[in-house]
C-alpha cells in the first residue's frame, strides 16, 4: 500500500471516529486539541488502524499517535516490519 493510500485510509478512520470532515484533518492537526479525541476515541482509532492494516500497535506506541503524520509514520514502519518479517 502506498504512503498516500495509507494516509487516506487513516484520514477516513479519524474522520469516522471524530466526526470531523476529512478536509479538516491535516498532517499536523492534533487529535486531542483540534479534533476532540479523548482516551476512548484514541483507543478506537488504534483498534481501527490495526484492523484496517492487519498490524499490531504496541501499547507503548499508542501515546505517540497524536497527529495524522505520526499515525502514518507508525503504520508505514509497522507495515515495513511486517513485510520483512
Amino acid at each position: 500500500m502506498s504512503t498516500n493510500n495509507v494516509e487516506q485510509e487513516i484520514i477516513s478512520i479519524i474522520s469516522d471516529v471524530s466526526g470531523f470532515d476529512e478536509e479538516e484533518i491535516k498532517p499536523d492537526t492534533n487529535f486531542f486539541q483540534d479534533l476532540e479525541i479523548d482516551s476512548i476515541k484514541a483507543i478506537e482509532i488504534t483498534v481501527a488502524i490495526e484492523k484496517k492494516f492487519k498490524i499490531q500497535v504496541r501499547d507503548k506506541d499508542v501515546p505517540n499517535i497524536t497527529t495524522l503524520k505520526q499515525a502514518v509514520e507508525l503504520v508505514n514502519t509497522l507495515l515495513t516490519q511486517k513485510a520483512t518479517a
Partner: peptide
C-alpha cells in the same frame, strides 16, 4: 487526574 494518553495506553491492561 487521568492522563488521556496513559488511559489509552492501558487499553490491553
Amino acid at each position: 487526574n487521568p492522563d488521556t494518553m496513559f488511559l489509552a495506553r492501558m487499553r490491553s491492561w
